Structures are given as structure tokens and as C-alpha cells.
Amino acid sequence: MKKQKIEIALEVFDTVSELPKDIQELMNKAQQARENAYAPYSHFKVGAALRLVSGKIVLGSNQENAAFPSGLCAERVAVFSAGANFPNEIITDLAITVRAESHEVIEAIAPCGACRQSLAEYEQKQKSPITIYFMGETGEIIKVASIMDLLPLGFDAKYL
């Protein structure tokens, strides 16, 4: 037996104003999208904004449903919308932000497992990483160069 260690590199920004201007714009769009979330059950709103290589920005917000598995996370709403409306464009960046109605979220909240898997599929499809920035409502912003930084040993089509 041998042990292997998996490490990831993160960049941490203290405030949105420290981000590059184009990413500040993207995070601001994610914050706006967050306010359109339909979250009557969790009271936890998530907004996502992604930028395509053409410069177009696609928004997503979480959409809940009384039949809980029927809801969809903001990240998947955005990426599926991009895939449906701009199928041949490469996604370059994704910004994610959250807000809870009961308390201030100051920790950076990463995508859930289902969103990580969906994003990994898009990276594989486009043969290019998606840089991801995520934050709470306020506080630090974390940047990863690829979803694979958050999903090492991910499942993909080569296993089928």
C-alpha cells in the first residue's frame, strides 16, 4: 500500500473590491441573480453568474420546489442555460454568492457535489477549465482555477 496526497491551490481575496474589475462585475451580477432566487423552503438564496468567452454573461439562481428533488441549484441553472442558449461557447469564469434569511453568511460557500459534477462535465466538454469564484453574502472570496480543484478524482465519461 502507498499513500498519496491531493493538494489544491486556492486564492483568497478579502473583499470584492480586490478582485479584477471584470470579476467584480461578474460577482455583482451573481449578487443580483441571488435576489431572484426562489427559496421559500430553505430561505437560502444562491446566485451565479458565468462569463462566456464572447463576453456574454449568463445568470442563475436557485429554484426550489415543494417536491425537494425537483429544485435546482443556481450554478446548474446558469450552466444549463448557457449550454442550451450558447452551446458552442466556452465558459471562462463563474461567480457564486449566497445569502441566508436568518443570519449573515460570511464564509465562502463552495458548490454542492451535484453542481461540481455538472461543472466538471462542462469543463470536459469544452476541454477548458472554468475559473470559479465563490463567497458568502460578505467576507472572503475564494478562487479556484478549475472545478477539478474542488472535485479531485471526479467521475467522467471515460469510465462509461
Rank of each mutant, 00 (worst) to 15 (best):
M1I: 06
M1Y: 08
M1Q: 05
K5R: 13
K5L: 14
I6Y: 08
I8L: 08
E11V: 00
F13L: 10
D22Y: 13
I23V: 15
Q24E: 02
M27L: 09
N28D: 11
A30D: 02
A33Y: 02
Y38K: 05
Y38I: 04
F44L: 10
F44G: 04
F44W: 12
K45R: 08
K45M: 05
G47H: 01
G47D: 07
G47L: 04
A49M: 08
L50V: 04
L52K: 06
L52Y: 09
V53A: 05
S54N: 10
S54W: 06
V58S: 07
L59Y: 00
G60H: 15
G60A: 12
N62G: 01
Q63N: 15
Q63C: 13
E64R: 08
A66L: 14
A67I: 00
F68K: 15
F68W: 11
L72P: 04
A74C: 02
E75H: 01
E75R: 02
V77A: 04
V77H: 05
A78T: 04
A78E: 08
A78V: 05
A78P: 09
V79Y: 08
G83M: 05
N85L: 04
P87S: 03
N88F: 03
E89Y: 00
I90M: 12
T92K: 10
D93R: 09
L94I: 10
A95V: 07
A95H: 06
A100L: 00
S102W: 03
S102Y: 01
E104F: 01
E104T: 12
E104W: 00
V105R: 01
E107L: 12
A108R: 01
A108T: 05
I109G: 09
C112L: 07
C115E: 06
R116L: 15
Q117L: 11
S118E: 08
A120N: 10
A120S: 14
A120K: 10
E123H: 14
E123L: 11
K125R: 14
K125H: 14
T131H: 14
T131P: 08
I132Y: 10
Y133M: 12
F134L: 00
M135I: 04
M135W: 00
G136Q: 10
E137S: 12
T138K: 15
K143C: 07
K143M: 07
V144T: 15
I147N: 00
P152M: 05
G154C: 09
F155D: 09
F155S: 11
D156T: 12
